[in-house]
């Protein structure tokens, strides 16, 4: 198994992309998931549906619209050009934005479920102890939703690592900038260099399995430890 310099660059880039996206998503999705879990607004169904769209849409749809929207004539492209940022396709920033959309349901949904599972009771108790809303959220909700955050972070990270279609459509395969592992594997296959593709693909397979194995064993341990106390 041999890895070239471009393979290593692709691995580093994938990890950097997934790390950046996961951190941003955890911050962005916390208020969103909280709102979705607690609101009685009639917009809830609509927002839920929009967030879940990337789960069912083919990446080609998302990639195609992003390419058009982030282009010079697209509305995102016009905004970014006006801000002096240029256009986003073929840049790392562009990939981050695309991945935020693409991986969002994998972060929002575990958080939403964790908040729902919490129920009103702990918050009401905290309120009787004169904890303000922010205080309640930080000292009660966050610690009790730890499991949800772990799941959200792991799934968001793993899903971004596994992203392919969208990156292929807006990336342009630039080494160190947009050529992530999945694209590098694809390029190897296209160039008929199957041995190189094998090495990277095997790493991806083992890595993804280990991440999920880690997640599920942590999950089953925490549920198992809950049983005696109930």
């Amino acid at each position: 198994m041999t890895l070239s310099d471009t393979d290593l660059a692709a691995i580093v880039l994938s990890l950097k992309l997934a790390g950046t996206v996961t951190v941003i998503l955890l911050v962005l999705c916390t208020p969103l998931a909280w709102w979705l879990a607690t609101t009685r607004s009639s917009w809830r169904g609509t927002v839920n549906a929009v967030v879940a769209l990337p789960l069912v849409l083919p990446p080609t749809v998302l990639g195609f619209y992003l390419l058009v929207a982030m282009g010079p004539q697209g509305f995102i492209g016009e905004i970014t050009t006006w801000l002096g940022l240029g256009t986003l396709p073929f840049t790392f920033t562009g990939l981050v934005i695309a991945s935020l959309l693409y991986s969002m349901p994998f972060v929002v949904q575990p958080l939403q479920n964790a908040f729902l599972a919490l129920g009103k009771r702990p918050l009401e108790v905290a309120a009787t102890l004169r904890a303000g809303p922010l205080d309640r959220f930080i000292t009660v909700v966050l610690p009790l939703s730890r499991g949800g955050y772990v799941t959200a972070a792991v799934l968001g990270f793993a899903h971004t690592i596994g992203e392919f279609g969208v990156v292929l459509m807006i990336g342009g395969s630039i080494p160190g900038e947009t050529r992530v592992v999945s694209v590098e594997i694809y390029d190897h296959v296209e160039a008929l260099q199957y041995a190189n593709a094998h090495s990277l693909a095997a790493i991806m397979l083992v890595f993804s399995f280990l991440i999920l194995l880690g997640l599920y064993s942590v999950q089953s341990r925490s549920t198992a430890s809950l049983w005696p106390s109930r």
Partner: peptide, 20 residues
């Protein structure tokens, strides 16, 4: 300044959308 299409159809798409 180079961006690479995975085939000539995607390369066309990069130019047609104005991104390149």
């Amino acid at each position: 300044k180079r961006v690479l299409g995975e085939n000539i159809a995607q390369t066309f798409q990069f130019v047609a959308s104005g991104n390149a």
